[in-house]
Design a binder for these strands. Sequence first.
RNA 1: GGUCCGUUCGUCUAACGGUUAGGACUCAAGAUUUUCAUUCUUGCAAUAGGGGUUCGAUUCCCCUACGGACUACCA
Length: 512
Amino acid sequence: MGRITRVRFAPSPTGPLHMGGVRTALYNYLYAKQKGGTFVLRIEDTDSQRFVPGAEEYIIESLAWCGISPEEGVEDGKIVTQPSPKHPHAPYRQSQRKDIYKQYALQLVQQGDAYYAFDTSQELDIMRSKAEAEGKAFTYNHQSRMSLNNSLTIEKEETQKRISSSSNWVIRYKMPHDKIIKMADLIRGDIEVDSSTLDDKVLWKAADGLPTYHLANVVDDKLMEITDVIRGEEWLPSLPLHYMLYESLGWNNLRPSFAHLSLLLKPDGKGKLSKRDGDRLGFPVFPLEWKNDKGEVSKGYREEGYYPEAFVNMLAFMGWNPGTEQEVFSLEELAKAFSLERVIHSGAKFNAEKAKWYNQEYLRMKPTSQLAGEFTPILNSKGIYKDQEYISKAIELIRDRISFVNEIWPLSNYLFEAPEVFDQKVKAKFWKGDIPATIARVKEMLANIKEFTKEEIEEQLPLFIKSNDLPMGAVMNSLRLLLVGESKGPGVADIMALIGKEETLARLGKEI
RNA sequence: GGUCCGUUCGUCUAACGGUUAGGACUCAAGAUUUUCAUUCUUGCAAUAGGGGUUCGAUUCCCCUACGGACUACCA
């Protein structure tokens, strides 16, 4: 009690971090910030088989993009490997902490809470498939352990011989068969499990000298003085084991509090959100773009044009709400308002429309000058160079109809270059009869306007049309057709004033 | 199969045991607009089913159904 809050995000570098993982990291970050505590990053790479190059860097970069970088475990974008005042528990990569874990596994064996097991994985696989064929499930537990190859059934000397002569053995936890394990979850409340339904999990493997997740996670959380474990729901079934490990190791008073987050679900159908759903449904599942070793590219929110604030805000609301009607929150506001009590118990289906809406909200809060700066490279890539003032004015005219910066061009191209193609339907509807001749008269009138401003045009144009008894709809729509190429866009006067007198007259004089 | 977790509009969600079950996204309609949008207004739309407990259940308990996670020498 009274311990300073320390939370950790402990991903496994087996691939890019997906948005569910980012949400878990976010909730950890928010919780730490609110409590004035520390957010630690630890890399759980105890499975050398599944290690993916670049995944670790991806995780760090993703968190940085979201603005939720850990203050401990990472320095200069890299995992810390040497202890320092700021990073006292280094290294933060479990593969580099290899030597720490074995002693605890051995301690458990000595106490009689764990044992050596010699069954090969092939033997166990055979037993599993055999049991499955009979409609049963094979589990290594209190019922089966006494008929298997382990230090409980083999003579002491033979056991010693096998341990020293080969590395084909593991240490398994000896799960008690008669205990009701009472646990608490900060989100779900009290949970009870009968230990007789649990199995004897592998804690440590001689083959690679590494612990499995269960041992590594308990040992590191204790050593790193973690006070609260906030992780995905997939860990709930192993919580009883973790409780037992804390107890057997004599660390009950240092056991952290636990909170298990519900999963992010597919927008359609069933099951949890997976990498493939994004490709299939056309939205990103990852914060940043990711290329795998086959060269396949998965979309990223950053590359799709999302603002990190919008992405984070959207993610925070997938499974949490403040209890008020406010939906737009900065990271600071989120940290202030966050509470595990208000985290939703059930899984949330991801909604791409809402994500888009969030980005629109954030885009609307940006000053036009910033949007102009973000849009300039896109413009330059089309070979168009304009000053910032002009670009800002153009964006001002269309900014309330976009959700992303990359939507500016398709909605504003006619403000930068004359239209080449003209909407045939609009043309057929208005460009007939006297209209071409009428437009020529309008053009002449416009040429006589000295101050070619929006206000001046807005006054002169309708006046001219009315006083000459011309058809308002046909004239206005035809002007728009000549200026834009189709029937969309801001007011005709706005467009004319922006592109200027010369360009306006040129477009109105063009044959279509 | 077993263990655990969950279930309010299509989606995200709100509601000390007492509300006409609220908001947001989407969708539809209307107003504004010479266009397309924006904006504003309105509308559509939910407590999985069955038992209890209670004067009164979305809310508490039980059962069923459905969904999910886990059930590896993966995390």
